[in-house]
């Protein structure tokens, strides 16, 4: 039953199966390591920090909202510099751009800014350019230069600054690189003037807190910021790179009467417009009615039919006004 040939065959089969099992085990190990490797912490990947504490977490805009003071605080790894960035939703905006035509300034172009953040506030414990290298600043979009690079502009006028030529069109087109840079700068500075964009070095206070560094930032919320959710990102930097980061959401919402009016204006615009006209008209007529009633009380008509002004020897024009008023009042 079990002769020599069979024994050799059995031995060979076992050998073959052994190799097969070893190859399979090796493949499993290789696959597992391939999956595990990308999730393993790399040298430059930032660690997670505790999320920042926002005071207040929600800014509510009621009828008497007079602006809000915001405080952001938390802890970062010991010895790290801190950058705090607040971003609003991205949206498209359209502008006219003035340019010099001979000696005069006229609108020469129509600019379409695509997907720029509505708000960009960057605060740092030092100078951002000395805390991080250019690659990191660009990667995390942390300063003016990094944001300007991401602002995508379209224009209606093909301007070449080097050649000094200008050619208008009726469709959006890609601007020349130098012109695009100029437009990005103009946009950033406009937003800075509105208070929606700012870059403030040395505005984050750092204090030692045991084995950590405590950071705190105080600022006034921009008045022109639109309602919405804002992303607050905190970056801890050391050795010109980001070593840890955290994020939180700051809500900026309308409440009460403003919320009702804003929703009415966007959801039922015809009713809102009609109501606005009616209310404005009523306000005008009521003010007039109130004013004329007050005037009538102040100037009682004399018994003999002369007006108060003529009775007291007032100017003929004044008397004429009063007579005219009295006549029209009588007619009414």
């Amino acid at each position: 039953m079990f002769d020599g040939v069979s024994a050799v065959k059995f031995y060979r089969e076992c050998l073959w199966r052994g190799w097969l099992l070893r190859a399979l085990a090796l493949a499993v190990c290789f696959g597992a390591s391939a999956i595990a490797l990308p999730t393993a912490p790399a040298d430059h990947a930032p660690a997670e920090m505790p999320p920042p504490k926002l005071i207040p977490e929600t800014i509510e805009m009621g009828a008497f909202y007079e602006g809000s003071h915001v405080r952001i605080e938390g802890t970062a790894p010991d010895g790290a510099g801190v950058l705090v960035v607040i971003r609003g939703d991205r949206k498209d905006e359209f502008f006219n751009r003035k340019g010099r035509v001979g000696p005069i300034w006229l609108n020469v172009d129509r600019i379409h800014i695509k997907q720029a953040p509505s708000v960009f506030l960057s605060f740092a414990s030092g100078d951002a350019s000395t805390m991080l290298d250019r690659a990191s600043l660009d990667e995390y979009r942390l300063d003016e230069s990094a944001i300007m690079k991401r602002i995508h502009c379209l224009c209606r006028c093909k301007c070449s600054l080097t050649e000094g030529t200008r050619q208008s069109g009726d469709r959006d087109m890609q601007p020349d690189p130098e012109y695009a840079k100029l437009l990005q700068g103009d946009f950033f500075h406009l937003k800075e003037r509105e208070g929606c964009y700012c870059v403030r070095p040395h505005s984050v206070n750092l204090t030692a807190s045991g084995s950590k560094t405590a950071y705190a930032l105080d600022f006034e919320w921009p008045r022109m910021a639109p309602p919405g959710d804002y992303q607050v990102e905190v970056y801890a930097c050391r050795g010109m790179c980001v070593i840890a980061r955290s994020a939180a959401t700051l809500r900026f919402v309308e409440v009460g009467f403003p919320a009702y009016m804003a929703s009415l204006a966007s959801n039922r615009p015809w009713a809102y417009g009609g109501g606005a006209v009616l209310v404005a008209m009523l306000a005008g007529f009521l003010t007039d009615a109130l004013a004329s009633r007050l005037r009538r009380k102040r100037r009682p008509r004399a018994k003999d039919g002369t007006t108060a002004a003529s009775a007291r020897g007032g100017a003929p024009e004044e008397a004429a006004v009063e007579t005219h008023e009295a006549e029209t009042t009588h007619r009414d």
Partner: peptide, 29 residues
């Protein structure tokens, strides 16, 4: 103009308009 702006652009702020109108109605008188 108000009706058209409210319906098409949603840019009529009735609070602002009423405040200005209040001042201006008195001024107009």
């Amino acid at each position: 103009a108000t009706l058209m702006q409210a319906a098409t652009n949603q840019t009529v702020d009735v609070v602002l308009a009423l405040l200005v109108a209040f001042g201006s109605t008195v001024g107009a008188q």
